[in-house]
Design a protein around this nucleic acid. Structure first.
Length: 931
DNA sequence: GCAAGGTC
């Protein structure tokens, strides 16, 4: 069997289809992994890297005393499978193979992925022949040639990739751990560092600093308005920007009629058709359509997977010869682009345009199938149309412009105007994304005199450089060699998720700046694109066998050790610097009570906003627990309270915007305050004015303080405090009810707990006790289904009974026994005879009496007579001596309070029978026997 | 829990 290993499933399928020719390809799924077989060949796709590098075991604890971050530099590195299913399938197929061909992408990373596959094959089949197919596009021509000219794997090329992996891992992991530990950050708050992300972040920080330190300069622009035959002309002073106001004013004053046309230069300008799309230029063009980098890539990948466009991750801007451009044009015919295609076919430029970058990985992004707007939907269509039109434009002739440069003389002051007229639209006919702005000047002749309609002197200011937009940043990253076509847009996502940057255009956060500061001061190597450049140079040496992988990695290890010499010497200093710089990140604004800063605090899973004036100022705002999301400060500010808005963020969930924490605090407590009978709007306003927002604050205040604060007398204040206590109790019970219901009734779509509780409240059920005496119909009305309702009622009753007994003073151990005996309600203890309770529970009758006494007193009922243990035991013996009276009957007699001969003798048989169910005749017999 | 690089 001939096993062919491709880089991904989709290429495996295509390669199989091409190689099979007219033969049918059998597609088979082996546990989510597809294989494509024909003849004696089987093609299988990887998923890019199916193994990953990591440190050898023993380095998982970040805080280990012995395995410090520095020790990661020299830690052994192992490869471990990340796609286990693919790995095992490859190995299963390899055992049966007599030839294996590696058909991964034609670039460094592809060679490394190929070597990973090679090692997997070798591990199970050491003797099999393994060769390599190289192609830069999955077209029939390229694939056939590649398989007719199979070569060997280039181990030097793969080694270059491995060197990169090792260097990235040790620098990234060691520095990430060091900086995170120094700044005492863990979990989701770690501070990551990496060869690509750190220089990228540094550029964003640097740009922000330039903007902050920018000093605007005032300048003046002088222009005049004239016209010919009713056509307006605007001419600018040839001095351009005047930095000297006096000079500008003088020139303005000197601008007088006559205005004479001095010179006219006519020319032609070539407007070159755009070059084929690589990933970066595609992202830039898509961003003009309003798509973020990540979105554009996601849509492009979708189109690629469905066969509409070619592979969107490419560095190539030159169509390879093997690409059949005519065939692509033909597939586009007949659809929406029919007219444009026909025009391109008739006016085709001799050779398609080509960009500066040419590579072997993939062809430039181009359409591969025809589609309709309806089939794709708005956004995908936008991207598809862009790719199609760009492709058409690269085959179209250049546009041509006629240009005019005209100079004027206004009594000695020189002016100029430029005009442009589109002579030939060329590619612009099919690619309308960049506007062709014409400015047509009327026909003028030297010496001609024109009127001056207006002279205007505008004062302007120089502008700071702009922040990076995502697409601009991706361009700059590419210029600096940072990241790859596949990862650049993800790096931005990473910086955002680490909360190093925010917004669009991108701004660094305080954390982002603090980390770059620390690294710049103590480990500048990692913040500069230089590191990538050097790494690439070294990789180039490895590719050319001029240096070995180990040699390059060893050099890098030594450099990293020198970096750690500096870092470790300043560890605590680095830590404090970062912590001090980022403290502000948690600061929300001034405390309404005392004016100190309010700060978001996280303690375990709970979080709140507290005052930095604590403990003198105890003002605080509670926040939902961190299971709802971690509270962070966001940019917006509340105009009323001057506090930053707060947001809860959680992985995989939409952020929960709390808005102004104080507004939200006030709003969420108004309802509770209204529960106090004496609360009025006026009183509430006075309370708010003194920063008292919750019932618990009122309940916690001394009546005198409260009286002084809101200006009422002490009696009223005491009443308010009591009412607050009551409201607090109601709230406490309500929240208890909520937790109770949540345990038993599972939430469902459209039946949230909030909704159930709201419904229960409307039914007058506000706590567990009310629930225990409610009927099932009321629960049904509240939207709780019958089965859950019954369970809810039962549990509620059980809980209430237990509480009542405990409250009366019945100890917990006995309570369990009563529950086991099925006699655990206060009524049971009040109304059931003591002998019955004792026999059901096995508790000493004297102890039972004590409990019954407790409950009866609690309920204001008389306590029945005491029965001692000897009385009880003797009585039982007496009863059992009566002929025909067994244990079961004794237990039933207990129910009627009969426990010995004497009580039986006095009993009324009619009455006893109805209670115990023992036939009257038999009871008479027992009594008769005693008499 | 860490990087960057593939792929989805």
């Amino acid at each position: 069997m001939h096993l062919i290993i491709a880089e991904k499933n989709i290429s495996a399928n295509r390669i199989a289809q091409i190689l099979a020719g007219n033969e049918k390809v059998r597609a088979k799924k082996d546990g989510k992994v597809s294989t494509y077989s024909f003849d004696t060949k089987t093609v299988v796709g990887l998923k890019g890297h199916v193994v990953e590098v990591d440190f050898e075991p023993g380095y998982t604890n970040w805080r280990s005393e012995t395995h410090t971050p520095r020790t990661l530099i020299d830690a052994g590195i192992v490869k471990k499978p990340t796609e286990k299913k693919i790995v095992s399938l490859i190995q299963k197929l390899s055992k049966k193979a007599d030839l294996v061909t590696i058909a991964t992408d034609y670039d460094t990373e592809g060679e490394l992925i190929g070597k990973e596959a090679y090692e997997l094959v070798r591990a199970v089949n050491p003797g099999v022949r393994i060769n390599r197919a190289r192609f830069s596009a999955i077209t029939p021509a390229e694939i056939r040639t590649a398989f007719e000219n199979l070569t060997d794997l280039d181990f030097d090329l793969a080694s270059a990739g491995e060197a990169r992996q090792t260097v990235d891992l040790m620098w990234g992991a060691a520095l990430t751990r060091f900086i995170s530990l120094a700044a005492r950050r863990g979990g989701t708050n770690i501070l990551s560092v990496g060869r690509v992300q750190s220089p990228t972040l540094a550029m964003i920080v640097e740009r922000e600093r330039e903007i902050e330190s920018f000093v605007p300069q005032t300048y003046w622009m002088l222009s005049l308005a004239t016209e010919k035959d009713g056509v307006p002309i605007e001419a600018r002073h040839t001095a351009g920007r005047f930095t000297d106001h006096e000079a500008a004013l003088a020139a303005e004053a000197g601008t007088k009629e006559p205005l004479v046309v001095a010179d006219i230069k006519e020319g032609q300008k070539n407007d070159r058709a755009p070059t084929p799309f690589d990933t970066t230029t595609f992202i830039v063009a898509a961003s003009r359509l309003g798509l973020s980098a990540a979105n554009a890539m996601r849509l492009a990948e979708d189109l690629y997977m469905n066969g509409y466009i070619s592979y969107p991750r490419t560095d190539n801007t030159v169509y390879p010869k093997s690409l059949n451009l005519n065939a692509i044009l033909n597939t586009l015919k007949g659809g929406v682009f029919d007219k444009d295609v026909a025009w391109v076919q008739q006016n085709r430029r001799p050779v398609p345009t080509r960009g500066k970058k040419e590579s072997t990985d993939h062809p430039p992004i181009h359409p591969t199938g025809s589609a309709t707007r309806e089939a794709l939907g708005q956004d995908r269509w936008k991207v598809y149309e862009l790719v199609v039109r760009r492709f058409l434009a690269t085959l179209s002739p250049d546009a041509k412009w006629a240009t005019t440069r005209c100079t004027f003389d206004a009594s000695g002051e020189p002016y100029k105007a430029t005009g442009g007229r589109l002579l030939y639209a060329g590619w612009r006919r099919v690619y309308p994304y960049s506007e062709a702005k014409e400015n047509i000047l009327p026909v003028l002749a030297p010496g001609e005199r024109l009127p001056i309609k207006k002279v205007s002197l505008e004062e302007k200011e120089t502008q700071p450089p702009a922040r990076y937009s995502q697409s601009r940043l991706i361009q700059v990253m590419e210029e600096h060699g940072l990241g790859t076509k596949s990862t650049r847009h993800e790096v931005i996502g990473k910086l955002v998720s680490r909360r190093y940057v925010e917004g669009n255009p991108l701004r660094p956060t305080l954390v982002g700046r603090a980390v770059i500061d620390a690294l710049d001061n103590h480990a500048e190597t990692i913040t500069e694109p230089e590191m990538t450049r050097t790494l690439e140079e070294h990789m180039e040496f490895i590719k050319q066998s001029r240096r070995s992988r180990d040699d390059v990695v060893t050099e890098s290890r030594e450099m990293l050790h020198r970096v750690f010499d500096k870092l470790e010497a300043h560890k605590s200093e680095i830590g404090t610097e970062i912590m001090e710089q980022t403290a502000e990140e948690h600061t929300v604004g001034p405390c309404p009570a005392c004016g100190h800063d309010l700060r978001i605090r996280h303690i375990g899973v709970s979080q709140f906003i507290g005052c930095t004036g604590y403990p003198e100022c105890r003002f605080n705002i509670s926040l939902p627990g961190s299971t709802w999301g971690k509270a962070i400060r966001v940019e917006a500010t509340c105009p009323e309270h001057n506090l930053s808005h707060v947001r809860l963020i959680r992985k995989g969930a939409r952020p929960w915007d709390i808005g102004c924490p104080l507004c939200s605090h006030i709003a969420s407590n108004v309802e509770a305050l209204r529960m106090m009978p004496s609360m009025t709007d006026d009183l509430m306003q006075r309370l708010h004015a003194h920063h008292i927002y919750t019932v618990s604050e009122i309940a916690g205040m001394q009546p005198e303080d409260l009286a002084n604060t809101v200006d009422v007398d002490t009696k009223e204040a005491a009443q308010l405090a009591r009412e607050a206590e009551d409201a607090l109790e109601v709230l406490r019970r309500r929240s208890e009810l909520r937790k109770f219901v949540r345990k038993i009734v599972p939430p469902r779509r459209g039946r949230s707990h909030a909704k159930i509780i709201k419904n229960l409240l409307e039914q007058g059920i506000g706590d567990i006790h009310a629930l225990s005496v409610a009927d099932i119909a009321a629960l049904k009305k509240a939207g709780i289904p019958e089965t859950a309702g019954t369970e809810l009622l039962e549990s509620a009753r059980g809980l209430c009974n237990e509480r009542a007994l405990r409250e009366a003073g019945v100890p917990a151990v006995s309570l369990k026994k009563y529950q086991a005996g099925g006699v655990a309600s206060p009524d049971d203890l009040c109304y059931l005879p003591i002998p019955y309770l004792a026999s059901k529970t096995g508790i000493n009758p004297e102890t039972v009496h004590k409990h019954v006494d407790l409950v009866c007193r609690h309920r204001g009922r008389p306590t029945p007579q005491k029965i001692t243990k000897p009385m009880f035991e003797r009585g039982r013996k007496e009863l059992l001596e009566i002929p025909g009276l067994g244990e079961a009957t004794v237990d039933r007699l207990y129910l009627a309070g009969i426990y010995d001969a004497a009580t039986l003798r006095e009993a009324n048989p009619e009455e006893i029978s109805s209670i115990t169910g023992i036939p009257k005749a038999r009871l008479r017999d027992y009594i008769g026997h005693l008499k």
